[in-house]
Simulated scan of single mutants.
Amino acid sequence: MEKTIIRTATEADGAPLAELDRRTWSTLHAVMPRPEPPYGPFFTERSRPEHFLVAESGGRVAGYVRLMPATPLAANAHVRQIQGLAVDDAFRGLGIARALLRAAADEARRQGATRLTLRVLGHNAPARSLYASEGFVVEGVLPEEFLLDGAYVDDVLMGRSLTS
């Protein structure tokens, strides 16, 4: 397998990232409805290329992580939040999600953050296990926060320190 590089997204990544999002959509991790045509742009004013780190292998987009300030408030400018992580099925099991999480932590530190948080659906055991193995701990649970495919699903809040 080709060496994987992780880099900041560019405008040219919009179409491949949008396609990846559509291919990997699942109620295991998505609370929004399945994307249907006509598709809007992947990048928007609130979700710009610089918010994404892209994993590329063999010239192909293999995955991405979206890293954002948790809120626009100055009082928690020290917190970054992962607001999306996807890996192409063809690249699963190669450590790409783990590499993206580590790159997100490094980028968050570079931006001056001391904490990294995320939200994950309670029934997404593989993601929860990965996050725990990377130092994230459950910091809160919103029970039955979402109704997906006729079942109530918890919203699990996880976080970790970037200083220890």
Rank of each mutant, 00 (worst) to 15 (best):
M1G: 13
E2T: 13
E2C: 05
K3D: 13
T4D: 02
T8D: 04
G14D: 12
G14N: 08
G14R: 05
A15Q: 09
A18G: 14
E19L: 12
E19G: 05
L20V: 06
R23W: 03
R23P: 08
T24P: 03
W25P: 12
W25Q: 10
S26T: 15
L28C: 04
A30N: 13
A30M: 11
V31D: 02
V31N: 03
M32Q: 13
P37D: 10
P41T: 15
F42M: 08
F42A: 08
F43G: 12
E45N: 06
E45K: 10
R46D: 15
R46S: 15
R46T: 15
H51P: 10
F52D: 09
V54P: 05
A55L: 08
A55V: 11
G59Q: 05
R60F: 08
V61A: 12
A62H: 09
Y64M: 06
V65H: 01
V65E: 00
L67F: 04
L67H: 06
P72Y: 07
L73P: 02
L73Y: 12
A74L: 14
A74S: 11
A74F: 10
A75G: 14
N76W: 11
H78A: 10
V79D: 02
V79H: 07
I82W: 00
I82V: 14
A86V: 10
A90R: 15
A90T: 11
F91T: 06
F91Q: 08
G93P: 11
L94T: 09
I96A: 04
A97W: 00
L101E: 05
R102I: 07
A103K: 01
A103D: 01
A103I: 02
A105F: 01
A108S: 07
R109M: 03
R110T: 13
R110F: 04
A113Y: 02
A113G: 11
R115E: 12
L116A: 06
L118F: 01
L121Y: 06
G122M: 06
A127D: 04
S129Y: 02
L130V: 03
S133V: 07
S133A: 15
E134R: 00
G135R: 00
V138C: 11
G140Y: 00
V141G: 02
L142E: 15
P143K: 07
E144M: 04
F146Q: 05
Y152L: 13
V153T: 07
L157F: 14
L157I: 10
L157Q: 10
G159Q: 04
G159V: 08
S161Y: 00
L162E: 00
T163N: 07
